[in-house]
Amino acid sequence: MKRGAALIAGCVAALSAAHGAELRATVRDEAGAPLADAVVVAVPEGAARSLAPRGHVEQIEQIDLEFVPGVKAIRAGTSVSFPNRDRVRHHVYSFSAPKRFDLPLYSGTPPQPVLFDVPGVVTIGCNIHDWMIGYLYVAESPYFAKSDAAGAARIAELPPGRYAVRVWHARLTGAESSTRRALDIPAAGAAVEWRLPLKPEMRVRRAPAASRDGHY
């Protein structure tokens, strides 16, 4: 089946050879249910690390006391701004090895975005809102995508070639490297699927908001 699909994909890719190949990844959990917010990365073999051009700024907003989006993938070298859309202030921080940063209690948008130039996963939290967790996946290659609700992630315009594809999820049990696959991506494109073992969801309970009349 895969061969067939690959063939068709290859045909399509041939038609769009000018646009590059497409990697269609499907991420499921162990039970087979589609998994969203998984980041698929395709790293061309042998390619040197490259950074994103300067001046590219992404953002992770704080809306309604949550990081939006909860999971974001950027290319290493991208700066991310953290605009606070809430009426309350937030203290955004991360102790992750790729980037330690600390935005003390602020409202609005901090003047300087934060540069993330080390690939890896940066776990972002808010000091005063324990449940606010955001994941910033800093990819080392420009070829990455986040899976949607259907568990589908499409990486477009891949130069055909040999790639090491990996997938990451916040609840992934084990190392990301264990998901690595070597994949030849022809011009027609390729598909890849993972079933990932996951840790259980461990959400910190969101504190209830105080209402005006003193009741919860």
Partner: peptide
């Protein structure tokens, strides 16, 4: 050899570390 009442709590930053 001692009996202890222990409480274990995760240190979250923001995920348990």
């Amino acid at each position: 050899g001692q009996a202890l009442q222990l409480a274990v709590v995760p240190v979250r930053a923001p995920t348990p570390i």
